[in-house]
Design a protein around this nucleic acid. Structure first.
Lengths: 338, 338
DNA sequence: TGGTTTTATGTAAAGGTTTACATGATTATG
DNA sequence: CATAATCATGTAAACCTTTACATAAAACCA
């Protein structure tokens, strides 16, 4: 592989001049430039990225951490991140953490080793103190999630209010026995959604029932299994609010397999509006998040952070939308009190 | 950020000794080692990855290129790649190409710039000559796809035979008017699946109908739109074989929206067996690929390539399985010839 | 004890850039 | 015409490691 020295020798200039031709920053005589370009061409010269990075103390790599790469919601966030990053000349390294704290820390350590310039976290499960301290010395942006009371930059919707909104949607349809399948309870965002659910019930004067709140792991399978459990209790719910669409789709299958119909017997709503949700039958009622935009804006913030540019706004909260489709309908069953 | 020099100074040794303590390769006096470790601890020293990489001419980064990061099939392949890579101490940089040749080449160029050690391509749409030439000088593995007549290492199933198998499944159910929604026609793997479909028809003495072969782009939407088109022709098909599950799921929705039922009126089968396929209703008949294993094995091969170790086998073909679920059933309609 | 081997450590080069500073040539200025 | 300003280029340091080679000290052997 040809180096800058080879090019310099062939063009009969110093390596500094070759470098200048590449960067275009300093002026260089057109004739010289021509010679250098020809030499580069002839030798098929590719500047060594590592050497560049080492010298300039930049890697042009940013890390995006997701709990699970298979999760379609995060895929779209990543897509936004990727597009934004590419536009600014950055590459994206994606890490699946599987909700594993150590894996998360391992990826974060890459920053300390100068292997990446910044990191986007889509789910916070690291301990707060560690995170705050880390963010103080390295560029970090939270995407999808907002850490209350912290000034770590973030881009997200208001999960609490969105959860309240969709729960109220069910309440307005006459449902009072509403189950909630939450995501991993150590994830802040899932706590926010749970809170929203609780607030809505509260505002309607409905006592919450411990049995109706179950913890899943975002997967189709967990939605399915938990719903089977919910269907085995004494007074089964008339509606289920799952903290993401995948669990909702799992729930619908469980209900079908149980011999009941959605939404006739049980309404099901999800959260995220992944692409599949409008294709399943019945189409899923859910909360639409601007996932692509979340990704894009968070990466733009991160890049500003990396470049030490000022942020116009540290916490960005984007709009979400309730999308009513076929999976939620008026409650058919009278509530047998007991 | 502390450097090796700081550590050396504090421990009163040379930088070489510090390096030796880190690598553990050469012997070093226990007492010295202790001092060095303490100094590293005290300074919170993190070796600079870039400098290491530059010196050792390794990046420990491999690139995985997928056509679309949102595609759930590829997500699982990536997962296999990631896990395999992590185990060997490599990081994975994921690139979405969107079927764009230039993007692909841009990512491949990262290898020439020494920013990555190797690359896994999950879909080949670069021109063959370029690819062959590139593979000759850089570590490349094809995952999911096999380039006939080339010796570029690959891990895949036999797409042609799998497509034949699932088409025969439909034929055995009495279908003779079978449509095929293929993937992007410039993708080799899609050509293979199309070939398999054709061979099966041929073996059953069925003439193929140009109208029944349509090209999609792997997405839910394209499956939907193409199926609408198929439903508007004169003699609509009694079965549809989509080249991936997402298009099949899109097709099912189109059929529902058209007022027909799956599989009663039209059978639908897919390819890949993504997780959603067993959760949709009716559950999708499809071909199961060992996607995780494809990812894992391809990354293992790539790492061997990077380390210049010999490959026991250059082209790995894994087993696929026909998974019959609810979306395919015996043909109900008599074929009105004409 | 003198010479050889082993062990522990240091010195310095190498990896391929970018860039601050220096230098020499050219042009502008009064 | 002398001096200043500008332009083009070169020199060498810096980025932070790893590692080949050298050296000094210690251990071993006859």
């Amino acid at each position: 592989m040809a180096t800058i020295h080879d090019v310099a020798k062939l063009a009969k200039v110093s390596i500094a001049t070759v470098s200048r031709v590449m960067s275009g920053a300093d002026p260089v005589n057109p004739k010289t430039q021509q010679r250098v370009l020809e030499a580069m061409e002839k030798l098929n010269y590719r500047p060594n990225g590592l050497a560049r990075n080492l010298r300039s103390q930049k890697t042009n790599v940013i890390i995006a951490l997701v709990p699970d790469i298979k999760n379609p919601f995060f895929s779209e966030v990543i897509r936004g991140i990727e597009d934004g990053a590419r536009q600014a000349g950055f590459n994206v390294l994606i890490g699946s953490t599987d909700g594993d704290r150590d894996k998360t820390k391992e990826y974060m350590a890459l920053l300390d080793e100068s292997r990446a310039d910044g990191i986007i976290l889509t789910t916070t499960q690291t301990d707060r103190a560690f995170l705050e301290e880390f963010a103080a010395r390295s560029p970090v942006v939270l995407a999808c999630e907002y850490l209350p009371g912290s000034d770590i930059p973030s881009v997200s919707i208001d999960n609490e209010s969105a959860a309240r909104k969709i729960t109220k949607h069910l309440l307005s349809l006459g449902h009072t026995r509403i189950a909630h399948i939450m995501g991993p309870s150590n994830v802040i965002l899932c706590q926010a959604r749970l809170n929203g659910y609780r607030q809505a019930l509260h505002q309607h004067g409905i006592m919450e029932d411990e049995l109706l709140i179950q913890e899943g792991d975002y997967s189709l399978d967990s939605g399915y299994l938990i719903t089977r459990k919910l269907l085995s209790i004494n007074r089964i719910p008339t509606a289920i609010f799952a903290a993401n669409d995948e669990m909702a789709i799992g729930a619908m299958k469980a209900i079908r397999d149980f011999g009941l119909r959605v939404p006739h017997d049980i309404s099901v709503v999800g959260f995220d509006d992944i692409h599949f949700s409008s294709y399943v039958s019945p189409a899923l009622t859910t909360i639409q998040q601007p996932r692509y935009e979340i990704g894009q804006r968070s990466v733009n913030m991160l890049i500003k952070l990396i470049r030490s540019e000022p942020l116009d706004q540290s916490q960005v909260v984007l709009e979400d939308t309730l999308v009513v489709r076929e999976s939620s309908a008026a409650c058919q069953r009278a509530i047998q009190e007991g």
